[in-house]
Amino acid sequence: MRSSNHLIGLINFLTLLLSIPILVGGIWLSTKANNTDCLKFLQWPLIIIGVCILVVSLAGFAGACYRNTFLMWLYLFVMFFVIATLIGFIIFAYAVTDKGSGRVVSNRAYKDYYLQDYSGWLEERVASDSYWAKISSCIRDSKVCNKMGVSINGVPETVDMFYQRKLSPIESGCCKPPTECGYTYVNETVWATGGGLVGTNADCTTWSNDQEQLCYSCDSCKAGVLASLRKSWRKVSVINIVILIILVIIYVIGCAAFRHNRRIDNDEPSGEARMTKAQPSRFEF
């Protein structure tokens, strides 16, 4: 029991140090947001998690090292809600990212993305006109499509080389027209109609060779963002599961330290048997 205070003090000191880069990363992302909402999916969870870990670590470290019962109680109280919040977030993240993935395209290394493959709260939020205006503006400002150009020894890549590239969901959905439209490749962000459009996909007429338009208004672009968010949220969920396991272990140790501190505060003996004899022995040695 006595070693529990030292152990939880050490663990909370390490988590205190861990909270610093998490907070710095969240603040850095907030400064890079450029007054748009496209990075808030990463920025606010990092800041909230960093602040919670910082507060809990400070309370747990001080409570364990100085045997302060109130701080230990506050530590356990906040830790319980952090654990409950993490559990809820993990369940929510898996629920809203349950459906949707890219479709394999024949003779292509990249995938095409369709909005109808997604559903639920996340799809409705991203696809809403008000929110999509902010996201598409952020994608346009990030110049992700302008950075797609590849050249080898000063020579632009050929169409066959482009077809073998593994594009990100946003590059595939926002920077080129859907494959079913039948456009002819000119370069990464310029496509010719060729013999005419194929298929009835509305994105075929939405696509524009204007570098400020491209497919930013296409459903395929929204689907690409959803696919990117799904991938990011799944990665965050895996990290959160690891953090959850560590926090549960720390919480159990904290409960042991809290009981130990209460016994000391109440002047209860530690490590001694508290049994009394029903009647004295008749034999003396």
Rank of each mutant, 00 (worst) to 15 (best):
C181R: 09
T276W: 08
F61Q: 07
G63N: 06
F89Y: 15
A192T: 01
S151Y: 08
V186I: 13
Q116D: 09
V144P: 01
W73R: 09
T31G: 00
S208H: 03
D210A: 07
G254Q: 12
V96P: 04
C215P: 06
W191R: 03
L247E: 10
R230S: 12
E157V: 07
W73F: 10
E284T: 06
A33N: 07
N153M: 10
M79V: 02
M79K: 00
T179Y: 09
V236Y: 13
F283D: 03
Y251G: 11
I48F: 11
H6T: 14
W28N: 08
Q279F: 11
I249Y: 08
I170A: 04
A127I: 02
L7K: 05
A33G: 02
V238I: 15
L115C: 02
P156E: 12
L17D: 04
F258C: 13
I83H: 05
L29M: 14
A278C: 06
N35Q: 06
W28R: 05
K32L: 13
P280N: 10
S137Q: 09
K277M: 10
K99Y: 06
S172K: 01
G63R: 06
S217Q: 14
F77N: 04
V56N: 11
E157I: 15
I27F: 13
D210F: 02
C204W: 14
V56C: 12
D37I: 09
T184P: 00
R165Q: 15
S136N: 06
I90V: 15
H6A: 14
N146F: 03
M161L: 09
L76M: 14
G102Y: 04
F77A: 09
R262C: 14
K147I: 02
M148C: 03
S101I: 02
G182H: 08
L10V: 12
R108W: 05
C52V: 14
V104D: 13
S3I: 06
V236G: 14
M72E: 12
D219T: 11
K143A: 03
R263E: 13
F285E: 09
E284P: 00
A257S: 15
